[in-house]
Design a protein around this nucleic acid. Structure first.
Lengths: 127, 127
DNA sequence: TCAGATCTTCTACAGGATGTAGAAGATCCC
DNA sequence: GGGATCTTCTACATCCTGTAGAAGATCTGA
């Protein structure tokens, strides 16, 4: 069963952890960097083989979420887009799956906090 | 690997097709109804065994997306929530995965059509 | 330059999710 | 009661993800 574009966006747990690390650090990281940081992640600390991290990075690369610099010797990896862009795109993809987008937006607005609503008003005002 | 709540929301192709049928018809449907409708779906017409449809329905039930009326003899199935509610919830879940929700909303607004932006303004105005 | 260290790629396997459906058990109607 | 209809159980294939060893590639100090 082929995964369509949108379902591809759903990441596994480890894939997600790696993306979180790449997203929260500004610098491109090596597989070893990531391995070490994963080993020190408070609650869900994972002591993984570097090859495991490399495999995950390759898969993320194939999914288009990560890019690697092949020039440097320990390859360096970085997220292709910011977490915010990625998340916004996911939201947009979800929105796109429904025929009546306005109705979806109506429900969505209803489920948003007042603070978020205020943010939205502000963003939509100067637009 | 346990699926978290949000990843559970990502459906397979057939599961998605069945949900689409349940969402677009007002009446609760039997497995046979659905089987027949799947067999007449223009492009991606699928000629499936009824048991296949039943299996999928059971799985959707387990995921909380579908409810079945056990009273009637051919059980009747219907979606638990509307497509719009479901989609809005997905969007909200996506939003929840990012620490900086406001930044996500900003990107999201940027990717929305003018018509949708207008809808949002209207919805947010009377709030 | 060469050998040990470091790094990457290949290959592999396990477990869960999904598509698919037959066999067998349950229920209904004539 | 018995054939027809319906549901549940069981099963298998494939894909995705987690996980990592083996083997190949590359680098670096002596």
């Amino acid at each position: 069963m082929q995964r369509t574009l949108d379902t591809m966006a759903s990441l596994g747990e480890l894939e997600r952890s790696v993306m979180d690390l790449l997203w929260s650090a500004p610098e491109a990281a090596t597989a070893n960097d990531l391995r070490d940081r994963l080993a020190q992640n408070g609650q869900e600390a994972k002591d993984l083989a570097v090859t495991t991290v490399l495999t995950v990075l390759s898969r993320l690369e194939k999914k288009g979420l990560v890019e690697r610099e092949r020039g440097t010797r320990p390859h360096r990896y970085h997220a292709v887009s910011t977490r915010e862009d990625h998340t916004a795109r996911l939201m947009h993809e979800a929105l796109g799956t429904a025929p009546d987008r306005e109705a979806v937006l109506a429900r969505f607005i209803g489920s948003v906090t007042e603070a978020e609503a205020a943010t939205l008003r502000r963003l939509l005002a100067r637009g």
